[in-house]
């Protein structure tokens, strides 16, 4: 019953990662000092942390400016309406440059859109592939060939096709956003498709026998037996898809100039200031952390739908 005994499991759990992180930071700051680039010295942890703070302050300042802009507009409008009550005053939206937080949100929106498109395509096709060996055999070569293609190869094609087909300048669905989202879905849909197909094809034959004995209609069999039974595997697929999508997103945003994290990195690289490398490193950590959070969310969802676990 000594206090050491109660502490030791916690220590055992947290000491190794804490040590590893400390070692990594030390190696990083030591290594960074050794390399001089055309943009100055490679930034160490302290510089990166500094830039993260600056990016956040810029965001706060920009928000403040926007708020002031809208307040001024409101005041001006009230003044105008006082003079002439029938006057129509056009509302002008604030056009400041997107802050780092805005860029993160754009990236999240893009990956979400791509993920939704991918799921909408992959789930039905996956189910059909799982139900019919013939369809599976027919589509398998196409799936195997397209699966390993890099987003960088898809992007020019998607860009040309979207530019040809999608001719609007709508503000809420810009072309660059759509191009990035479609590229993301083209790369990420395969995991969901394959997992769904495998899952449906390998449903426990006992469950199928139950459906047969109850004489369920094909539709009922699919929705009451096959899909619930496949749900854990489908979620594994969705989890992989989201991970792939997030990874692919940065590359496609860079090239499609979608105003997200990818474009942020590209712009900083082109900008070439002495802070650029530090800012890019902030982006690297942001991407990693968000990817980690997205994965945890999917794991939680996956746990919800897995039925083998006992809910004690």
């Amino acid at each position: 019953m000594t206090p050491m005994k109660s502490i030791s499991p916690v220590l055992k759990k947290y000491t190794p990662p804490a040590l590893a992180i400390a070692l990594f930071l030390m190696a990083w700051s030591f290594g960074a000092k050794q390399i001089e680039t055309s943009l100055g010295q490679v930034p160490g942890p302290a510089m990166v942390l500094d830039q993260a703070r600056i990016l956040w302050q810029e965001h706060v300042a920009e928000r403040q400016k926007a708020r002031e802009f809208y307040e001024r507009q409101k005041d001006r409008r009230a003044a105008m309406l006082e003079v002439n009550p029938s006057a129509t005053v056009a509302a002008v939206s604030y056009t400041g440059k997107p802050t780092y937080v805005d860029q993160i949100l754009t990236s999240l929106k893009t990956v979400f859109m791509g993920f939704v498109i991918a799921s909408l395509v992959a789930l039905p096709i996956g189910i059909i592939c799982g139900l019919s060996k013939t369809v599976m055999r027919a589509l398998n070569p196409l799936i195997q060939v397209f699966k390993p293609v890099s987003p960088l190869a898809w992007l020019p094609i998607v860009t040309m096709v979207v530019s040809a087909v999608y001719v609007t300048n709508s503000a809420w669905l810009p072309k660059s956003f759509l191009i990035s989202a479609i590229t993301v879905s083209l790369c990420s849909l395969w995991a969901t498709l394959i997992n769904t197909a495998m899952g449906v094809a390998s449903v426990n034959p006992d469950y199928i026998n139950v459906a047969r004995v109850l004489q369920l209609s094909p539709l009922k069999k699919t929705f009451k037996v096959l899909l619930p039974a496949t749900l854990p595997l489908i979620f594994t697929g969705l989890r992989i898809s989201l991970g792939v999508g997030w990874m692919v997103l940065i590359a496609s945003e860079m090239l499609a100039q979608n105003p997200g994290l990818g474009k942020f990195i590209w712009d900083e690289f082109q900008n070439g200031s002495s802070q650029s490398l530090a800012k890019i490193m902030v982006a690297v950590f942001t991407i990693g952390l968000i990817g980690f959070v997205l994965d945890r969310i999917m794991v939680e969802l996956q746990k919800r739908v897995s039925f083998e676990r006992v809910h004690a």
Binding site: N209, V210, V213
Partner: peptide, 20 residues
């Protein structure tokens, strides 16, 4: 010609749907 409700079967491995 196929399974039917008039012939109920109890399987050895229960065959319950685990999510229900």
């Amino acid at each position: 010609t196929g399974p039917g409700r008039e012939r109920g079967i109890v399987f050895q491995n229960y065959s319950l749907l685990p999510w229900l």
